[in-house]
Design a protein around this nucleic acid. Structure first.
Length: 209
DNA sequence: TAGGCCATCTGGTCCT
DNA sequence: AGGACCAGATGGCCTA
């Protein structure tokens, strides 16, 4: 691109700065045209002095420019690494999600939505298992803290998903789960209606249930 | 060819 | 001051 720094006037006679800064090895702005290439002999000492001042200012401006450019390049590099890390994390997330039969790679947004729904579904599974266990044994359920209360499940009765029976009777979630806007079922952060969460999960992970 | 997805650059803002 | 984070812009690639 190089749009921001392309305004640098390297053809100017005043720009006699020859850059030797080692911190900007990748810069293409090093080749400044020497003042002698202008072809005009300096006239008076006053003019010479003025020219020196201008040259000094040009050097300062050029230095500032190079420093800015170098800083920008470093920032770009960091940003690139940051995004690569983000993508690596996304890949790691993809790797623990159920794979697709056709092996198509989920997009970023699909990965996040799928993971969101997948976590909710796993939580529901645990919760239902706990319910059944407590009914059959008449004993305290073995709750997996933090997982078993991931939200008030959207009722599967009204859609086409084949959820285990009993999933719709989830009213036992702790209050913080229901009030938490980040809770998958309490409120959908991704623009789904609650029934859509189930639907999209079902779509993304066919055959899991 | 339009639209979706992605990588990268960039400037702004916040934090340490 | 410098780094992290964020959102907008841009251009490339791919697919329907």
């Amino acid at each position: 691109m190089e749009t921001v720094f392309s305004d640098m006037d390297t053809s100017s006679c005043d720009y006699s700065f020859t850059h030797t800064d080692d911190e900007d090895s990748g810069s293409s702005l090093h080749s400044a045209s020497p003042a002698s290439s202008c072809g005009k002999p300096p006239a008076s000492p006053a003019e010479l002095q003025q020219k020196k001042r201008r040259r000094g200012r040009a050097r300062n401006e050029a230095t500032v420019h190079v420093v800015k450019k170098n800083r920008r390049m470093k920032a770009n590099d960091r940003e690139r690494n940051r995004m690569h890390n983000l993508n690596d994390a996304l890949d790691a997330l993809r790797s623990v999600l159920p794979a697709f039969p056709d092996d198509t790679k989920l997009t970023k947004i699909e990965t996040l939505r799928f993971a969101h729904n997948y976590i909710w579904a796993l939580s529901e599974t645990i919760r239902i298992a706990d319910q059944r266990q407590s009914k059959s044994r008449d004993a305290p359920p073995l709750l997996l803290a933090g997982l078993s209360c991931m939200g008030d499940a959207p009722s599967p009765g009204g859609d086409s998903c084949s959820w285990p029976s009993g999933a719709s009777s989830s009213s036992s979630s702790p209050s913080y789960c229901n009030s938490d806007p980040g809770s998958p079922a309490a409120m959908d952060d991704f623009g789904y209606l609650q029934t859509d969460v189930v639907y999209s999960y079902h779509n993304f992970a066919p055959g899991i249930y």
